[in-house]
Nucleic acid binder design. Sequence first.
RNA 1: UGGGGCGUGGCCAAGUGGCAAGGCGCGGGACUUUGGAUCCCGUAUUCGGAGGUUCGAAUCCUCCCGCCCCAACCA
Length: 560
Amino acid sequence: MSEPEIAKPSNFIRDLVAADTKSGRFGGKVVTRFPPEPNGYLHIGHAKAICLDFGIAREFVGRCHLRFDDTNPTKESQEYVDAIMGDVRWLGFDWGEHLYHASDYFEQLYEWAVKLIKAGKAYVDELTVEEMREHRGTLTEAGTESPYRNRSVAESLDLFERMRRGEFPDGSKTLRAKIDMTSGNINLRDPVMYRIRKATHQRTGDKWCLYPMYDWAHGQSDSIEGVTHSICTLEYEDHRPLYDWYLDQLGVHHPQQIEFARLNLSHTVMSKRKLLALVNEGRVSGWDDPRMPTLAGLRRRGYTPESIRDFCDRIGVAKADNLVQMALLEHCIREDLNRRARRAMAVLRPLRLVIENYPEAQVETLEAVNNPEDATAGTRKVPFSRVLYIEQEDFREVPPPKYFRMSPGVEVRLRYAYVVKCTGLVKDPRTSEVTEVHCTYDPRSRGGDSGGRRVKGTIHWVSASHSLGAEVRLYDALFTVPKPDEAEDFTSLLNPRSLEVLRNCRVEPVLADAPPGSRYQFERQGYFCVDARDSGPERLVFNRTVPLRDTWAKIEKGGA
RNA sequence: UGGGGCGUGGCCAAGUGGCAAGGCGCGGGACUUUGGAUCCCGUAUUCGGAGGUUCGAAUCCUCCCGCCCCAACCA
């Protein structure tokens, strides 16, 4: 059997892991982990990490754990835990039995901390936050040691136990590792291991009032789980010496930390802080607003997990800062949906079209192809009658050069129906806006067969009396510039046209049965999905995932 | 004046001493009952810069320049 999957491009992390398995390091095993903090929703940047963590494990026949880095109860919640698990599964990854929480290890971590105190490698400090900052020094100046740094092991041990018992108020004491206050690496200037937080934790409740810091919890959690390769983003590169130090002091299993550059996507923001602000300030409807780069938002927008995985494969993994263009993500979803989405006709901005020579009471049923890219998708029936709706932009009283659509005296094809010729128009006497177009049809062209003559334009349509009303939400980039992060106030760069709601759309009858979340290509327009939250039998709501590539728009824009 | 990283076409990104992959985008053409899709063709004499080593350098050495991250009891 040949491997059906196309070989993915290599990257330095896969090379490193491959070298380790070959040399027999870690007994040839590969164990990775995806370690989100449940303080927000997952976004496409996390998808890159997930694909890497789970992908490496799968490739090397190892396993990947899902571990919640839940060490800060004041910012975390069960809502986020649930959303994260749902999103990872939706993306297509399975952690099997291996669901863990840093909080599972609090007791072990505490014991190890005691061990470090006994070894003279950690001490209870009583500096305030401000004092500690002063003692830390600056980027160019060494720090100074805390006056509590050299208190006895016995005293630190006693204090640490009492910290756990809750005898001291929040912020009054910390446990610090005793490393080197003069290190050029600020992470090594006696980092805090524990702080007092009398807060209820979403999993451990009120059992603890002492919570470990990231650096103290993370590496040890990796070690406990037998992780071999701990893959994280570049900003943790400076933390690796500390990661290594803790593990070396403890003398326990020592995973390899490897860092890669996080994903930056144009025209959006990726920091959880900024995404949270958008949600809290009501700039978007929630974490799953279809304009958000969150997996929940992309899902509601109509993105498929396959397209996101493909995107993650294509962007690669390296250590250079990057800004990937949104166009690549859009390419990935178009490619996927072109292959899989059924077609339908929908008129977003309706304009009445009356076929003067078509019998008043006649209704025909025409056959349309469901997906020209997939013969197994079959065909469907579409009702046709004397009065139709066409797209406003598909008619021009005075056509610009190269305009192939409907205009007076010109023949155009109604997709899967007939060739028609515009014979007149009706205008609103006040606004002089075209309100109705008249035409005649050629009965011999049934099905759209032009009978050999050149008909350059083909436009979509729906039967006025048979079509269904629908609301369509047109989405565009959330920000007007490629790098909103560079602005002083990123919210000032929000795209005022990121959402346009069209309430008078007319769609083909087949769409009545479209299940929530299902995806379609509206011919000549783009890919749309049934909004999973707001659509229902009484009110059809579609979200535009991405428009089709539009060569005409380019010509028109460039020509003008 | 500290520490850690990174610089290959518009955007990603291979390449690890033998003469610049690939993808997206862009431009042109073919085809077309979606101005969609598909298919062709084009798109870096050059790898941040300057020296050096070598028959030969994006790959090795030296110096310089630029960009990113680090001074939470956040992760």
